[in-house]
Structure formats: structure tokens, C-alpha cells
Simulated assay, not measured.
Amino acid sequence: MILIAATKLFEELLETLEQLEQDNRGVLIDPVPYLKTSNHFMNALQSLVLTGSFDGQRDEILFFKTVKPKFRSFQIYYLALHEIIFKKPKGCKKVLKKFYADEIQKICTFRCNNQHIINYYYSGANDMDAQLFLRKVDEHPHWLIRPKLDRDERFSTIADHLVGKIVAMDKIQAYLSEEMAKLHCTSFIENTPVGKKQYRWTGEAINLVELAYGLYYTGEINNGNAGIAEIVRLFEKIFNVVIGKPSRRFAEIKQRKRLSKTKYLDQMKTAIDKRIDEDDEFVPKLNLR
């Protein structure tokens, strides 16, 4: 079944990109290896589709609406990142600020030009799915700006590439916003008086993994655009601890049998609830004298 195989392939893609992040820790990012990896997995995904078959139109729509765009978004993101780094001018903060602002404006223009499909995609609507996410369909919504299709029509619909680009734009804007923020202020952790104080994680490292994945899956950092490896590296830096490969530590959590899968998060909740209950029960005695 294509959907099951594609899901496993996407997990492999994430693990490979995560390993690249681990190997290049502390080094200025070079998007080329990431782009090559994304291209490799996209080719593998295409082979799945060309050699297999979908179990009906519902599966085909699901694939081209949600699965393929995730793969494509990484390709678009790393290609755009490569171009941004290549075009980045050398100069003062004012020059760099204008450069990043211009790049963000391009994203805003893209969103304005494709507002209909963006609204449709994020609203969860499905009434036009057959027109947008089935192959070889001639009729499409009048508001759709048709992008360049893949060369092989067996592996593309009228809107899947556009959805991938929409997802990628969010990642690109997050990167640009971070770069602009660096121009306005220095790192809080490294340069504030508090940041100079050394903090050490004295609990089990696996507990930090629970926290990291909790933040990752709830999308609380950078509008959900921070990768799990980035979050783990941040924790390692703040707390002077070595966590290791996040996916392997997460596998330890999933393999728990006797304990809760979220043992540490459960302990935190219990501790907070207990403190709140204690505060609510405390009634100060009135001094009637």
C-alpha cells in the first residue's frame, strides 16, 4: 500500500535530516547536503507511486494533499535557503535587514496571490479535493493559479506542488525572521547576566527528551517550525547535558511497558496540581486582637 510505505519513507527522511543536523552541530548550515537528501527521498517516493497503485480515489487524494507536499516542502525550503545564503549581501546591519525584509515581502506577495488555496488548505475543507488532488483532471477552481507540474503527470496533480510550497514558505519566513532578530539583539542566553550563570540538568536526560518532544509536537517554538534536533540542542546548551540522538531516546520512551509513556510529564502535572491544591487549602488565621 502506497500510503503505508510513504509514511515509513517520510520517517526515514526526518531521521536522515535529523542526523545531518547532529553531524553539523555548531557549524554554519550548508543547505546542499539537506537538499540532496530531500531530492533522494522524493525520487524514492516517486518510484513508490509509479510502481504501485492507490486503494481508490480517497487514498490518492490523501497522498497528493498531505503526503507528497510534506516531502516537496523540504525540497523547496532547502533550495530557497541555498539561494538566500548565496544572495546574502556583505555589509552593515542596515543592508542585511533590508535584504531579509525584501525576502519576507516576496513570501507575502506569494501568499496574497494564492490566498484562495491557502484558505482552502488550512480550513480543512474537502469539497474541491477531487479537482485539486486527483491526477489528470482537466477541471479546476477558477481561482487557482496553476503552478508548473512535475514532468511525469503520473506523479502530480494540479495543486500538490503549490501546497508543498505553501508549507515551505512558513519555514522560510521563520528562518528569515530569526536572522532579522539576530541583527536587533544578541543571544539572550549568552549575553545577559542571567545567561552567564551556569545551569546543569541534574535529572535524567530522558526527562528532557519528553519535554523536547512535548514542545515539538505542540508547536510552541517558532510557530512549530523548530525541529526536534534544534530543540534538543537548545536544551543541551542551556543545561550543559548530552542527550544524544533524539529519535533513539524517543524510541526508549515508546518502548516503556510498565511505566507511563510520559512518566516525567505526568510527574510534573502531579507536582503542580499538588501545589495548587495545597495553596487552595491554606486559609490564613485572622488576627482578631
Results as ranks from 00 to 15, higher is better:
245 K>G: 01
275 R>D: 10
253 I>E: 03
260 S>K: 14
254 K>S: 13
262 T>Q: 07
250 F>P: 00
233 R>L: 02
269 K>E: 09
272 I>L: 14
251 A>Q: 09
234 L>T: 13
251 A>K: 12
248 R>V: 06
236 E>I: 08
264 Y>K: 09
249 R>D: 00
246 P>A: 07
258 R>A: 13
261 K>H: 12
239 F>A: 08
269 K>F: 10
263 K>L: 15
270 T>Y: 11
261 K>R: 15
235 F>P: 00
233 R>C: 01
269 K>W: 05
234 L>H: 04
238 I>P: 03
268 M>Q: 12
259 L>Y: 13
247 S>D: 02
273 D>Y: 12
232 V>L: 01
258 R>K: 15
261 K>F: 13
242 V>W: 00
260 S>P: 06
267 Q>F: 10
282 F>D: 08
263 K>W: 07
269 K>G: 02
251 A>H: 06
276 I>M: 14
270 T>V: 12
268 M>V: 15
244 G>T: 05
283 V>L: 08
239 F>V: 07
233 R>T: 09
277 D>P: 00
266 D>L: 09
233 R>E: 03
247 S>Q: 06
283 V>T: 12
241 V>W: 01
279 D>I: 13
279 D>C: 13
236 E>Y: 06
238 I>N: 02
276 I>N: 09
269 K>Y: 06
257 K>V: 14
253 I>S: 03
249 R>I: 02
280 D>K: 15
268 M>N: 10
285 K>I: 13
266 D>K: 13
262 T>E: 05
242 V>G: 00
251 A>N: 10
240 N>W: 02
256 R>K: 15
269 K>Q: 12
264 Y>S: 11
275 R>S: 09
276 I>K: 11
261 K>Y: 11
285 K>A: 13
250 F>K: 11
232 V>A: 01
243 I>F: 02
249 R>Y: 02
239 F>Y: 15
249 R>P: 00
252 E>D: 15
240 N>L: 05
273 D>R: 12
